[in-house]
Amino acid sequence: MNPTTPGQPTLQQAIQAFFFRPTSAHTLALIRFATGSMIAYIHLVWMLNLESFMGPFALINNTTWNALHHGPVPDYKWTYLSQTESMSIIWCHELIACISGLCLALGLMTRTFSILAWFTTLMTAHRMTGMLFGLDQITLMIAMYLCFARPGSLWSLDSWLYGRFQNTYTQHAWLRLCSGVLNRGCDSTVSECWSNTFATRLIQLHLCVIYLFGGLGKLRGEMWWDGSAMWYSVASYEYQSMNMTWTGHFPILSSIATHITLFWEFSYCALIWPRWTRGMMLSMALLVHGGIALFLGMITFGVMMIVANAAFVSPTSVQHWVGLGKKRNEGSR
């Protein structure tokens, strides 16, 4: 006896469709570009003052790093950067990481450089104990999941090169392997692949966990309940990048904004899935993270949170918008 009504998928089919239904890489290609660019920028900024962050004269030198991580209660952070004091090796590592980020953004040998960009950034993150924040968490999370997908099959140098030198790609397996073009079970001509769906689901679910616990954490604080959290966020001199203290003249509005942020954050994991509430949740994400980027001095973090939210925009929508943009451009010519 079939327990489901006719036409309704079984649980197994629903899970299969949720994780493995082939989708195109339109959304992931945008995420790839933003994440790769951010990785390159992160390493560029480390390089601005590299001697202060790594090597013999680091603010947290290797001896201190080892004492912090491998004391009586050892942890599992490991990086080769904590074993060396050679600035040449450190510079090489940072340059490779920065170039990998750029290649990921451009979609050149995407499979190889996505893994390399993630790994080198992870090694740096492990070494930079005490200097990391949400930006590193989100960037590494997205970069890790991109390694499973085929974000280079669209709007990339890989797809351009494949179009020009199709025969070469067909002859050389290593080229296909390194670029991620035509990997097992995927048809490059339609650029639809189950791994795109799987990676997108991983980003989406991880993001839901982040918002759920972020919201639950705020629920513990009385400032988020009495509506003063918004004021105290904009009144922090260290975070402020634009003077927003005028919001204090409108305490009711400021309080409403605090409560909306609170309810949005902890309900995100449930309300982002139904189609009729998704648009509202994504608009709120854009507002909240846009606000953090512009007013609270964390432009990089705000941007990456918006990029992570883009995982909930369907590839067909991205394709549709890009198509509209192209048509407009052609019309204006």
């Binding site: 490991w78 590494l140 890790m144 982040i210 954490g217 959290a229 966020s233 922090s236």
Partner: peptide, 16 residues
């Protein structure tokens, strides 16, 4: 810990 996914996600929480 090694994958750097061991976070509490306490952004601006419990209070600024």
């Amino acid at each position: 810990q090694w994958l750097y996914i061991n976070h509490g996600y306490f952004f601006f929480a419990p209070n600024p």
